[in-house]
Design a protein around this nucleic acid. Structure first.
Lengths: 170, 170
DNA sequence: TCGCGACATGTCAACAGTGGAATGTAGAGT
DNA sequence: ACTCTACATTCCACTGTTGACATGTCGCGA
């Protein structure tokens, strides 16, 4: 149940409406924890019901601006410190690798080459994002930069691995 | 819907019962596509209903041994070649990093240090697994080895990243 | 002033995944 | 003969995720 914590986390930075949060999911969290509109609105209602967040203000188009309640902040901290990271690794990308043996060698190699390109492409996207943002010294910047660096290193690693893997076939 | 393809993939290697497949999920696929018992049995029934697999033999304890049908092999090949890998990246581990700012610096650093240890531990487990298996030249070995190498590189990367990240704080 | 795009929320059906309970059999060792 | 473990399947309630549909408003530019 990490979606609720993602929402609490975003609200810990500043108050926001469901719509605002949706936008922020699409941009900053898209690569880490994608969420749909329906999921976000449903979860916000539940969070408000259980008192972890509150409606602080109502705006123009039925807009409801939520803020983090004390209980919400406590829950967020608890999630960050007390709960152990659970292995959530589910990768259809890697799953396919296990079964490449049913294809002809050149098809298998083609799949790995696609992965090389995919990784290179994603790496480039992140690099451009990195350049576009002017990083400050605040928390958001420090941890945002750390998360982005993960993406860069991950894609570099995956690219090299796929290149190596292609040489292993046949 | 990758579970069905994972099952098709395993059955492409050799016929098996639900119980057999469960064991193989627990060992070889656990790090890539975890699945529970209930999920596997349900999916096998659906696959048999739609004619992608067949009950080839019935054994001792109500055991049903499934084999891949031609249609199943076709579907497996289709999945491997035609469908593009979809970004399934959902990482609660990385999600937390975004919000480490709400903690005190030493707590944030502690989290990253935990990640270093986790990565080192998983790396070691995979290294031992690598040693325990005597790799042949067959398809299973080649692609199994490639997948395992991914795990090794991934954990090495994550470890270095977390070590670097810890130095970035405060 | 009219229309369009961005803002804004809510609901629903369907599917995927989790965890546990219930049930029973075959075979190996004592 | 007995018991225990591994084998083997089915069902169920609950939560999480997806995608689509429905509905409406504000404010800006032509």
């Amino acid at each position: 149940m990490s979606l609720r914590h993602a929402l609490l986390g975003l609200l810990s930075e500043r108050p926001a409406s469901g719509y605002d949060l949706l936008k922020r999911f699409e941009t900053s969290l898209a690569n880490v924890w994608p969420a749909t509109q329906s999921q976000i609105y449903t979860e916000l209602t539940k969070l408000a019901d259980s008192g972890l967040i509150m409606v602080a203000a109502e705006g123009p188009r039925g807009r409801k601006e939520y803020t983090l309640a004390d209980a919400g902040m406590a829950e967020l901290r608890h999630w960050l410190t007390e709960t152990k990271p659970q292995r959530n690794t589910r990768s259809d990308l890697l799953l396919r690798v296990f079964f490449l043996g049913v294809l002809r060698p050149e098809q298998a190699r083609a799949y790995l080459t696609e992965l090389v390109e995919l990784s290179a492409h994603e790496h480039e996207q992140l690099r451009q994002l990195d350049e576009a943002i002017d990083w400050d010294d605040d928390d958001l910047s420090v941890y945002g930069r750390i998360a982005l660096e993960y993406g860069l290193r991950f894609n570099a690693m995956r690219r090299e691995w796929a290149e190596w893997a292609a040489t292993q076939i046949k």
